[in-house]
Amino acid sequence: MSETDPQDLADRYIAQWVVPDADERRAAIEQLWAEDGIHVLQPPVEMREVAAGLGFDRSVLQAQGLDAFETRVARSHEQFVKEAGLTFRSANDAVRLHDMVKFSWETVSTGTGEVVGGGLEILVLDEHDRIKADYMFPGA
């Protein structure tokens, strides 16, 4: 099996977050993800500070499995794309090292085209080049 191009993978990963149709979104998730894949998010610093103030010693959010990830993507789409008028795009800097792909992404206002945020993504792939672990660092 030939290795998946890292930029193609990054572009498909970003695209799943902005697909408006639920069936198309699920199909994209099933193509990208291993069934037991895990998505781990380091919340922005403001959320980490609130969590620390509440006595949490670690503030990491995670979803595991296709259904949980579908819920995560759908809620993100609803909040950021549909309601806030934002979209996401890859920074076109994806690189692969063995079974890992690293890339940056940007959050963009659909009204102004202004970059209003972004982050760093590190994906760990299984033997079929599906995502088995996704480490998301918004604001990085």
Rank of each mutant, 00 (worst) to 15 (best):
S2G: 05
E3Q: 14
E3R: 11
P6M: 14
L9A: 14
L9Q: 14
L9R: 13
A10Q: 10
A10I: 10
D11H: 07
W17L: 02
V18G: 08
V19E: 14
D21R: 08
A22V: 10
A22K: 12
A22M: 10
R26D: 06
A27K: 09
I29H: 03
E30A: 08
L32R: 02
D36E: 02
I38Y: 03
H39V: 07
V40M: 05
P43D: 00
P44G: 13
P44S: 09
V45A: 14
E46C: 06
E46F: 06
E46I: 13
M47Y: 04
M47G: 03
R48D: 00
E49M: 14
E49T: 13
E49C: 05
V50L: 12
V50E: 10
V50Q: 11
A52Q: 14
L54A: 09
L54T: 02
D57Y: 01
R58N: 06
Q62N: 14
Q62R: 14
A63H: 03
A63N: 01
D67L: 09
D67G: 15
A68N: 10
T71G: 11
S76H: 05
V81M: 01
V81Q: 01
E83F: 04
R89K: 15
S90R: 01
H98A: 13
D99A: 11
K102E: 12
K102W: 13
S104I: 06
S109C: 11
T110V: 15
T110G: 02
T112H: 12
E114V: 15
V116E: 14
V116F: 11
G117V: 09
G117Y: 11
G118C: 04
E121R: 05
E121G: 09
I122R: 00
V124D: 07
V124H: 14
E127C: 02
E127A: 13
D129R: 00
R130E: 12
D134Q: 15
M136A: 12
M136S: 10
P138A: 10
P138I: 11
A140M: 11
